[in-house]
Structures are given as structure tokens and as C-alpha cells.
Amino acid sequence: MTTPGGQSQQPNPYQTPGPYQPPPLPGGQPNPYAQPVGPPAMPTPPGPPAPGGGRGGPRWLWALGGAVLASAVWAATLMGTGALKDEESAKNGGRAHFAGYRFHHDMCETAKIASFTDKYEMAEFDQSEDPDGWSTRQKGLDSSLCSRTLHEPDNDSDFPPAVYVTTTVTWHKRSDPSGEFASQLRSYEDQEDKTSTYTIEPVEGLGDEAYEVIEKRGRTVGSMILAVRAGWMTYEMRFSWMGGGPDEHFEPPSRKKLHDMMLSDTRATLAALKKPDTEDAPQRDPRA
């Protein structure tokens, strides 16, 4: 095709053919039945100055710049939606992360309950060499638990009140527990009945998220749970109170006192979980 100036103009191979346009009317008047041609194309940004003061530059540089910008926008979108975390997890084979908390096979040795043993004494059967605890290591998760039974000190009652303190730690290896953690704890609210009410409150300064579940029986605390999630590790410390005989008047600790006791022991236990387990630690070569 030749322009009025005599210069040859090559057709644009990338131009998308538009709809059929009727020819103009005689005398150069536009045809009223012609189809609209649509909005004008966006102008192409000028390239960097070429040597000698001209404009232009290789088109692949501008394509690369556009790709970098698009990648940055896409990464920001993934971060905002959490998809980047899932994608990164998939690249790593879906491997879990436990925020530095290690598996410990004997939670009765690792879990700290000094705040409770300062107030109560351990039941005789819990002072044996075979405490009430267990651990398991499976493909999907590892778990370790210890349950302790305590009594009021120097008590001659035939039916002294029992205090149960249970510590459970789970390392989730196949699924991220963050999406269900809070919901599982809030499900206690649906267990209320005529004798028990439940309150769930967040606790600051522990792991990625932490909550306290308080069960009240009338005006006293019947049980309390302090639950922590750090990465794919979940921790739970549970206090349960079983009162004495009908003619005895024992009271559990106040809600504030229990909160302080469980918070102190939880922090001590989490610190201990960051240390290697003595059974799983590599043996030192005596010749070294």
C-alpha cells in the first residue's frame, strides 16, 4: 500500500481486523450505518533515549519491564490473600514449620508445673517412675502428653479435692492448624448447660495466637485451658478441679490466680520445648 507521499507502508501483522465498514457516501460524507471503531489504543510509552539523542530502544526491554511490574503486582496479591504462603509450602513439599519447638517424647519431664506444685502436692501414684504420660510419632503428626493429679497439702480428708493438670503438645506435619485453631476452642461456647458456662479470651504474647477457655460452675472456676499455636505446633495446658466431699468446703484458685499460674508454667514449658530432647539428641563420641 502506498501513501500520498509516495512512501510504501507495510501492513501491521498484529492488527486485529475490525468489523465490516460500509464505504463512505458520495462526496466524502461518512456513512451513518458504519460501525463504531471502539476506543483509541493506549499510547505506547516512549523508550529510553537512544544514542545520538533519538528515542526508542529494543522492544524486549519494555516487555521485560512490563513483566517485572506484573510480577510485583501478582506477588503483592498473593501475599494479601495468603496464596503465596500456600504456594511456598507446596514448593517445599508441604513441609510443616514448628517455630523452633522440638518434639519431646516425655512430656512429664518437659512440661513445667511449678506454679501448681508450689500450691498442691503430687498424688502418690504420680510420684512413681511410670507417670501418666505418653507420646506418639505418626506420618501426619507427632504428639506428647502428660497428666498430673494433685491434692491439697496436709489434708486428712477422706475425700480431698483433686486437681488435674494436663499438658499436650502436637506437631502437625501434614496440615496447617491455623485455620481451625480458634474455631475448635470457640466450640466450647456451644457446650454450655445449666451448671457450666464458658468464656473464650485471647492471650497476648504467646506464639502466633493463644486463647484461654474458662469454665465456670456457678461462681467458681471448674476448669481452664490455655492453648497456644506457633506455626504448625499446638500446645494446650488444661486445669480441672474436682471438689471434695459434700461436707467439705474447698475452693479452687481464683480466675486471676489460675491465669497467672498457667501463664507462668506455659512460658517455662515452651522454653523447654525449644531445647533438644535428651532421648533424641545425638550421642556424644567419648573420644572427641
Rank of each mutant, 00 (worst) to 15 (best):
A75M: 14
S187Y: 14
A96W: 05
P40E: 08
M233I: 06
P253Q: 09
T16M: 11
Y198R: 05
G222R: 08
L263M: 13
P36W: 06
P51Y: 02
S71G: 14
P46A: 11
Y101V: 00
W74K: 12
K274H: 07
T136K: 12
R229D: 04
A99Q: 09
S8D: 15
P36Y: 07
E236W: 08
E124A: 11
E236K: 13
N12K: 07
G56C: 04
T136Y: 05
R102I: 05
A70T: 06
I200T: 10
T168G: 08
A96T: 06
W232L: 00
D208I: 06
E212M: 13
D126A: 08
H172F: 08
L206R: 05
L258I: 03
K91D: 11
W241M: 06
S183F: 12
T168F: 08
P43S: 07
H104V: 05
P51C: 01
A50T: 15
Q10I: 05
A162S: 11
A227D: 03
V165N: 02
V73T: 06
R255D: 13
T166M: 11
K85R: 14
W241S: 03
P4S: 05
A75K: 13
T168K: 10
V203H: 06
A34R: 15
P11S: 09
Y198Q: 07
L270V: 04
R59V: 12
T149E: 10
S8W: 13
W241R: 04
S196M: 13
L206M: 09
M224T: 01
Y235T: 01
P40W: 04
R148A: 06
E129M: 15
A210G: 01
P58D: 14
